[in-house]
Deep mutational scan, measured.
Amino acid sequence: SADYSSLTVVQLKDLLTKRNLSVGGLKNEWVQRLIKDDEES
């Protein structure tokens, strides 16, 4: 899986927004959300 934890907050928020995922919570929660989205898609 991609190394989301190395991305900036701005990059992570951009990815979350593009995938229609929530940008609520902490940075590590966003990373988990993106990883989960990868596994489900």
Score class of each variant (00 low, 15 high):
Ser1Trp: 14
Ser1Met: 14
Ser1Leu: 13
Ser1Asp: 06
Ser1His: 12
Ser1Phe: 14
Ser1Lys: 14
Ala2Gly: 10
Ala2Lys: 13
Ala2Tyr: 15
Ala2Glu: 11
Ala2His: 12
Ala2Gln: 12
Asp3Ser: 10
Asp3Trp: 14
Asp3Thr: 10
Asp3Met: 09
Tyr4Lys: 01
Tyr4Ile: 01
Tyr4His: 00
Tyr4Asn: 00
Tyr4Trp: 04
Tyr4Gln: 00
Tyr4Met: 02
Tyr4Thr: 00
Ser5Met: 13
Ser5Arg: 10
Ser5Ala: 14
Ser5His: 12
Ser5Ile: 08
Ser6Lys: 14
Ser6Glu: 11
Ser6Phe: 07
Ser6Tyr: 07
Ser6Asn: 10
Ser6Cys: 09
Ser6Thr: 12
Leu7Val: 01
Leu7Lys: 04
Leu7Glu: 01
Leu7His: 04
Leu7Thr: 00
Leu7Met: 15
Leu7Phe: 10
Leu7Cys: 09
Leu7Gly: 00
Thr8Glu: 04
Thr8Gln: 03
Thr8Asp: 10
Thr8Met: 02
Thr8Ile: 02
Thr8Ser: 12
Thr8Phe: 02
Thr8His: 02
Thr8Leu: 03
Val9Arg: 08
Val9Ser: 13
Val9Asn: 11
Val9Lys: 08
Val9Gly: 09
Val10Asp: 15
Val10Thr: 13
Val10Ile: 12
Val10Leu: 13
Val10Tyr: 10
Val10Met: 13
Val10Lys: 13
Gln11Asp: 08
Gln11Tyr: 04
Gln11Thr: 04
Leu12Val: 02
Leu12Cys: 07
Leu12Ile: 07
Leu12Gly: 00
Leu12Glu: 00
Leu12Tyr: 00
Leu12Phe: 00
Lys13His: 10
Lys13Gln: 13
Lys13Ser: 06
Asp14Pro: 01
Asp14Thr: 08
Asp14Gly: 07
Asp14Arg: 08
Asp14Ala: 12
Asp14Leu: 11
Asp14Ser: 08
Asp14Glu: 15
Leu15His: 03
Leu15Ile: 12
Leu15Cys: 07
Leu15Thr: 03
Leu15Arg: 01
Leu15Ala: 05
Leu15Val: 04
Leu15Phe: 04
Leu15Gly: 00
Leu16Arg: 00
Leu16Gln: 00
Leu16Trp: 00
Leu16Met: 05
Leu16Gly: 00
Leu16Tyr: 01
Thr17Cys: 13
Thr17Leu: 15
Thr17Phe: 09
Thr17Ala: 11
Lys18Trp: 06
Lys18Pro: 00
Lys18Thr: 06
Lys18Phe: 09
Lys18Ile: 10
Lys18Glu: 12
Lys18Ala: 11
Lys18Gly: 07
Lys18Ser: 11
Lys18His: 10
Arg19Thr: 04
Arg19Gly: 06
Arg19Ala: 05
Arg19Leu: 06
Arg19His: 05
Arg19Pro: 05
Asn20Thr: 03
Asn20Pro: 02
Asn20His: 11
Asn20Gly: 15
Asn20Cys: 11
Asn20Trp: 04
Leu21Ala: 02
Leu21Phe: 01
Leu21Val: 04
Leu21Glu: 03
Leu21Ile: 06
Ser22Asn: 08
Ser22Ala: 08
Ser22Tyr: 06
Ser22Lys: 06
Ser22Trp: 07
Ser22Gly: 09
Ser22Val: 03
Val23Ser: 11
Val23Arg: 07
Val23Gln: 10
Gly24Thr: 12
Gly24Ala: 15
Gly24Trp: 07
Gly24Pro: 03
Gly24His: 15
Gly24Asp: 15
Gly25His: 03
Gly25Ala: 01
Gly25Thr: 02
Gly25Ser: 02
Leu26Met: 13
Leu26Ser: 15
Leu26Gln: 13
Leu26Asn: 15
Leu26Thr: 15
Leu26Ala: 14
Leu26Ile: 09
Leu26Glu: 15
Leu26Cys: 15
Leu26Trp: 14
Lys27Leu: 12
Lys27Trp: 11
Lys27Phe: 13
Asn28Thr: 11
Asn28His: 14
Asn28Val: 10
Asn28Tyr: 14
Asn28Lys: 10
Glu29Gln: 08
Glu29Val: 04
Glu29Ser: 06
Glu29Leu: 03
Trp30His: 04
Trp30Asp: 03
Trp30Gln: 07
Trp30Pro: 00
Val31Gly: 02
Val31Arg: 01
Val31Ile: 15
Val31Gln: 02
Val31Asn: 01
Gln32Pro: 04
Gln32Glu: 13
Gln32Ser: 10
Gln32Ile: 09
Gln32Trp: 07
Gln32Arg: 07
Gln32Phe: 07
Gln32Cys: 05
Arg33Glu: 04
Arg33Lys: 05
Arg33Met: 07
Arg33Pro: 03
Arg33Trp: 05
Arg33Cys: 06
Arg33Phe: 04
Leu34Cys: 12
Leu34Lys: 00
Leu34Tyr: 02
Leu34Met: 01
Leu34Val: 02
Leu34Arg: 00
Leu34Thr: 00
Ile35Lys: 07
Ile35Gly: 03
Ile35Tyr: 08
Ile35Met: 12
Ile35Ser: 06
Ile35Leu: 10
Ile35Arg: 08
Lys36Gln: 12
Lys36Trp: 09
Lys36Ala: 13
Lys36Asp: 12
Asp37Phe: 15
Asp37Tyr: 15
Asp37His: 14
Asp37Thr: 01
Asp37Arg: 03
Asp38His: 03
Asp38Arg: 05
Asp38Tyr: 03
Asp38Ser: 03
Asp38Lys: 03
Asp38Gly: 02
Asp38Thr: 03
Glu39Phe: 11
Glu39Thr: 08
Glu39Met: 14
Glu39Ala: 11
Glu39Asp: 08
Glu39Leu: 14
Glu39Arg: 09
Glu39His: 12
Glu40Ser: 12
Glu40Thr: 07
Glu40Ala: 09
Glu40Gly: 10
Glu40Asp: 13
Glu40Met: 13
Glu40Val: 07
Glu40Ile: 09
Glu40Phe: 10
Ser41His: 15
Ser41Arg: 15
Ser41Pro: 07
Ser41Leu: 11
Ser41Thr: 10
Ser41Met: 11
Ser41Phe: 09
Ser41Val: 11
Ser41Cys: 07
Ser41Gly: 08
